[in-house]
Design a binder for these strands. Sequence first.
DNA 1: ATGGCGGGTCTAACCCGA
Length: 277
Amino acid sequence: MQIATWNVNSVRSRLEQVLAWLERERPEVLCLQETKVEDGSFPLEPFTSLGYGAVISGQKAYNGVAILSRLPLEDVRIGFDALLSDGPALALAEQKRVISARIEGVRVLNLYVPNGSSLQSEKYAYKLEWLACLRRYLDVQDADGDPLCMVGDFNIALDDRDIHDPQRLSGGIMASDHERDALRLALDERLADVFRLFEPDTGHWSWWDYRSGAWDRDSGWRIDHIYLSEQLQERATDCLIHKAVRGNEKPSDHAPVVVQLQWPPEVDDDEEEEELE
DNA sequence: ATGGCGGGTCTAACCCGA
């Protein structure tokens, strides 16, 4: 089972590229961020034609998330307010950044974390509030007991290996202590960045700025992540960034990230014998 | 570098992203 995440920077602008990639790669699940479209205008039909069901939560011009799946989507939850009824969760619900569904018994949570703009900005305070709310949301969600695959555009480089020029950029937006701590607090030992289970080295990016020739200079950041709970970490065999997609004509500034899972777990011989007893 | 590019929509002396 393959689960992918991709900030497409407008699903309508990127439609032909997303469809071509889906036809080629055929992941069971693709989570989209920055769809930038209200639900009534989301292009559902091209995806259903390829065999993908969809659950969506969008708004005009900004943000927007969706989960596309060739397997049944169950128990869909939209916004932090699906699990939290307090003031902060309700206030954060205005921006469409959170959607989840259960797929083959796995809770797939798709997030578009606020960027924060700059450390002095009100948007940075919003980002920290949002991450604090994420932590509380995950605490409530834990009661489900389902294995968790949390994906998305986190707009945070977890450590300096994830930045092309840490000397210049570390400590700034997307690489500051407060936001890194807030994300690590939300992860709280229960979730692992699956890319790092396979690749310890720097030099692997998922986002390249449209400006300043960042792509040509390979000056990127790794800010698109897939986090797995313990049960799924043991089932992961691969996590790849589809870098070539960033070289397309009219690309998104993000590349897709894909995890390969042995899921549902194969029943091995020992277990079969136990079941027969 | 209050820069760069490329989405969006109130098509602009616009806003926003990362």
